[in-house]
Amino acid sequence: MTLYRNLTIRQKQIVWAWAFLAIPVLFYGVIRFYPTGTAVVISFQNWNLLGDRTWAGLENYRELWNDPVFWKVFRNTFAYLLIGTPVSLLLSFVIAYHLDKLRFMHGFLRMLYFLPFMTSAVAMAWVWRWFYQGVPIGLFNNLLASVGIAQIEFLNSTTNALPAVLAPAVWAGLGFQVIIFMAGLRAIPTSYYEAAKIDGVGWWTVLTQITLPLLKPTIVFIVVLSSIGFLRIFDHVFNMTTNNPGGPLNATKPLVLMIYDTAFNGFNMGYAAAQTVVLFTILLIVSLIQLYLLRSD
């Protein structure tokens, strides 16, 4: 106790700060950092969960580099990112921009857009999966067939399957992005718009010179959040392709699904951990870019 009494006020503050920080630090240490560290270690080992772990050196990474499925999956993961993020960004901005100007049934419409975000991804994926089936059960193909158009293979196709799986994922995230965009739009001071009105500039100039530049923090936030979301896409793909996970012919398989499959179907923990480290690195780079963009403001 005397030890504590002899401390300066500044030092006492530090002690107390650490005392309060201890719980989150412990939590992060045990629940986050320890398993992360273990995963990195396992990525240099061979382990089937049952026997002993044996050192494998860089073997898992070499295997990954030479695995054509990994590169296919890598491309898929970035296809989800590079299609999903711009499309959802554009859609949500257009919706938010017009919804913001609308007074009639504003709350109800906003609720409609937000509903999918609150729905379970699993339930949604299954409903969409059935929408996409061929005749006689698929909604879309039944509609096409009823007007005499040939059926479209949505999921059983190497080209259509990825966009088909992505569509409900974009739709599900839309509500959240619309809400964020609307908050961003509301935060822009009206005085800018009034000044623009006095000067008599057109709507395009207002949009590109006032609205978009002032929305930059909102846009960066949404881009980063949805990028991470699309890089980690799993539940939509897994549930829409359970019989042939990530199929057909790996056309829809994202990295997280490959990790899951390697770990819990193949029980090849070392190889799965190596894939996890790669995903971790990608996410880290994306996050660092985010920090850089936010700082430059």
Binding site: N156, S157, T158, N244, G247, P248, L249
Partner: peptide, 11 residues
């Protein structure tokens, strides 16, 4: 085997 049949169907 799933992929074997899929390759003949789709590719």
């Amino acid at each position: 085997f799933v992929d074997m049949v899929a390759r003949t169907d789709l590719e």
